[in-house]
């Protein structure tokens, strides 16, 4: 059972997971996980690799639907609405809950078209001028505008790794999501690019609910307000980041943050 830190202030959760289990075929990857994800905070998922962080993250915007063998049980709510109910439109859900992947994956299109991709498929602009504005705004918020404003027609794949990842963040922002899920967004980047992304996360946190999976405890400590420690498909401990790192309750958490395994 998840240990919740006593001095974790109760906030209305943006997303709320209730006894969620995820299976790949017969294999259970997530075991009865419950957690509330607050708005306007950064929540970090840490834990040894293979413990189910990505799986749980993907359950939050139903990306597991794209894996034929995956099956989700339990309930996940977005603003009180069950995202796995029949009335929930996956397309709408993913527009509201955006995702940034481990490896930057810009489309083989121009920088402009990468950002315009979401707004175009969701039709969230009236005329061409609006789209230009959305592209500019998203790039500005992702801190990429100054670097690319003169070459919006260059392919997105021609950017450096760190720029590509910020492009992917800008692409996710462009549809104005409420939640942004990031799965180890810096694991393919060098320290300078990582620092830029972390800065960006701090800036974005006032606006969106951000969930970040990271294998770096320093990163979790630097960027997140709350931390959940995953182990073997369960959340062992959940609380304010400072509490988790300075004052862990469970032995397993202590072992992990002192680097005894994982």
């Amino acid at each position: 059972m998840t240990k919740i830190h006593p001095n974790l202030e109760a906030v209305d959760p943006k997303m709320n997971a209730e006894s969620v289990s995820v299976y790949y075929g017969d294999k259970q990857a997530i075991k009865d996980v419950s957690i509330g994800i607050p708005a306007k905070y950064v929540t970090a998922f840490i834990g040894p690799s293979g413990c189910g962080k990505s799986t749980f993250l993907r359950a939050l915007n139903r990306m597991n639907d794209t894996i034929p063998s995956a099956r989700v049980e339990g309930q996940i709510e977005l603003d009180g609405e069950n995202i796995y109910s029949n009335s929930m439109d996956v397309v709408q859900l993913r527009a509201r809950v955006g995702m940034v992947f481990q490896k930057p994956n810009p489309f083989p299109k121009s920088i402009y078209d990468n950002i315009a991709y979401g707004p175009r498929i969701h039709g969230i602009f009236e005329q061409k001028g609006d789209l230009d504005g959305i592209v500019e705004n998203s790039l500005k918020r992702a801190g990429l505008w100054e670097e690319v404003k003169d070459r919006l027609n260059d392919p997105g794949t021609a950017l450096s790794g760190g720029q590509q990842q910020r492009l992917c963040i800008a692409r996710a922002i462009a549809v104005d999501p409420e939640v942004i899920l990031m799965d180890e967004p810096c694991s393919a980047l060098d320290p300078i690019a990582t620092a830029k992304i972390e800065e960006l996360i701090a800036e974005l946190s006032g606006r969106y609910a951000i969930v970040i999976v990271t294998h770096s405890m320093q990163q979790a400590a630097r960027v997140s307000d709350r931390t959940a420690f995953f182990h073997l498909g369960e959340i062992v401990e959940y609380g304010r980041t400072s509490d988790i790192f300075t004052n862990p309750i469970e032995q397993r958490t202590k072992d992990y943050i002192t680097g005894r395994y994982g």
Binding site: Q92, L93, R94, N105, F107, P108, Y117, I121, C168, R171
Partner: peptide
């Protein structure tokens, strides 16, 4: 075409056929 392209498009809320038309076939 890397799976990551497809995932990226689906995660943006594109449907499978939009993903095929806008990302997979062009790539």
């Amino acid at each position: 075409v890397p799976q990551a392209m497809r995932d990226g498009s689906l995660a943006m809320g594109a449907t499978t056929s939009e993903t095929i038309k806008l990302v997979l076939v062009p790539a």
